[in-house]
C-alpha cells in the first residue's frame, strides 16, 4: 500500500520519540557513571565534564564486583544447562503426547508468586545447610528457567512434523535413538532460543538471590544495594554498578537479538 507523505512525516517523528525515550535514560546512566558526584549534582553540566574511571575502580576494587559477576555468570550458566537437560526431553514428550495437564503443572511455576516459595524454601534449605551456597541459588533459578524452556520448546516441537521421527524409526532407530539423532539436531535453533532467554532471566533475577544468597555467593542485582547507604547515595558508584550489572546482558542480548525476539514472542502467533 502506498504511504502518504503525511504518514511518513508522522512516522519519522514517532520513531524519533521512541528512540529518545528508550535510549536517553540508558545513556544518562552510563554518562553519570563516568562523573564524580560533584559533576552529577550539577545538572547543567551534561556533557561538559572530564570522564573519570573512579566509580568503576570503586565497583571492582572496593565492592568486589568481579566476584559477584562470576557468581551471576555461574548461577545463570549452570541453572540453564541443567534445566535444558531436564526440559528438552520433557518439552518433547509433552508436545508429542499432548500431556496438557502435566504441562499446566509445570507452567503453574510461572504464575505462582515467588515470595510464597521463598519462606518454605528458606526453611527447607537452611535445614539442609544449603542457604548461602551456590546449590540453592542454582535450584531456585532452575525453577524459573525450566518453565520458560518448556514453554518455548513445546511451541517449537509442536511445529516440527512427527513424520521426521517416524521415518527415522522405520529406518531402524529406536524411539530414543530417533530423538537423539534426528530430533535433537533439528531443534538447535529452538534450544538456542530457550537457553539464551533462560540465561538472561537468570542473570536479571533478583528476589531469589536476595533471600537465598550469602555474602560470598550474592549475584550482581543483590550487590547493587551495597551502593545505597542509610544516609546518602553514592550516585556515581551506583550508576557504575548498575552499568556493570546490566550492560553485559544487554550486549549479550543484542548479539543474539534474533533468538531473543523469537523466544519472547513464542506463542504469540498461535495464541
Amino acid at each position: 500500500m502506498r504511504l502518504s507523505r503525511g504518514y511518513r512525516i508522522f512516522r519519522g517523528i514517532a520513531i524519533a520519540l521512541i528512540l529518545i525515550a528508550m535510549l536517553v535514560p540508558l545513556a544518562w546512566m552510563v554518562l553519570s557513571s563516568f562523573k564524580t558526584n560533584v559533576q552529577i549534582y550539577d545538572t547543567s553540566a551534561v556533557f561538559n565534564f572530564t570522564p573519570t574511571l573512579d566509580n568503576y575502580h570503586k565497583v571492582f576494587q572496593q565492592a568486589n564486583f568481579g566476584k559477584y559477576m562470576w557468581n551471576s555468570f555461574l548461577v545463570a550458566a549452570v541453572s540453564t544447562s541443567i534445566s535444558l537437560v531436564l526440559g528438552v526431553p520433557a518439552a518433547y514428550s509433552m508436545s508429542r503426547f499432548v500431556m496438557k495437564r502435566q504441562a499446566i503443572v509445570v507452567l503453574m511455576a510461572r504464575v505462582i508468586p515467588g515470595v510464597s516459595l521463598l519462606v518454605p524454601w528458606y526453611y527447607l534449605f537452611s535445614n539442609l545447610r544449603m542457604v548461602g551456597g551456590y546449590g540453592v541459588l542454582i535450584l531456585s533459578h532452575m525453577f524459573v528457567a525450566l518453565p520458560l524452556i518448556l514453554y518455548i520448546l513445546m511451541g517449537f516441537f509442536d511445529g516440527m512434523p512427527a513424520e521426521l521421527e517416524e521415518a527415522a524409526q522405520v529406518d531402524g532407530l529406536t524411539s530414543i535413538g530417533a530423538f537423539w539423532h534426528v530430533v535433537l539436531p533439528l531443534s538447535m535453533p529452538g534450544i538456542a532460543t530457550a537457553s539464551i532467554l533462560s540465561f538472561i532471566f537468570s542473570w536479571n533475577n533478583f528476589m531469589f538471590a536476595l533471600v537465598l544468597s550469602g555474602a560470598e555467593t550474592k549475584t550482581l542485582p543483590v550487590a547493587i544495594f551495597d551502593f545505597i547507604g542509610y544516609a546518602s547515595i553514592d550516585w556515581g558508584g551506583l550508576m557504575a554498578a548498575a552499568s556493570v550489572v546490566t550492560l553485559p546482558i544487554m550486549v549479550f542480548a543484542l548479539f543474539f537479538q534474533k533468538y531473543v525476539v523469537s523466544g519472547l514472542t513464542a506463542g504469540a502467533v498461535k495464541g
Partner: peptide
C-alpha cells in the same frame, strides 16, 4: 529501532530501578 526497543526489555530490572532513581531525583535528576 528494533535494537532500541529490545534494550529496556533485557535490562536488569533492579539496575533499571536505580537508573530511574537518579533520573527522577527531585533535586539532581534530569
Amino acid at each position: 529501532i528494533r535494537v532500541a526497543i529490545l534494550l529496556p526489555l533485557v535490562a536488569t530490572p533492579v539496575a533499571v530501578g536505580m537508573m530511574w532513581r537518579l533520573i527522577f531525583d527531585p533535586n539532581i535528576g534530569p
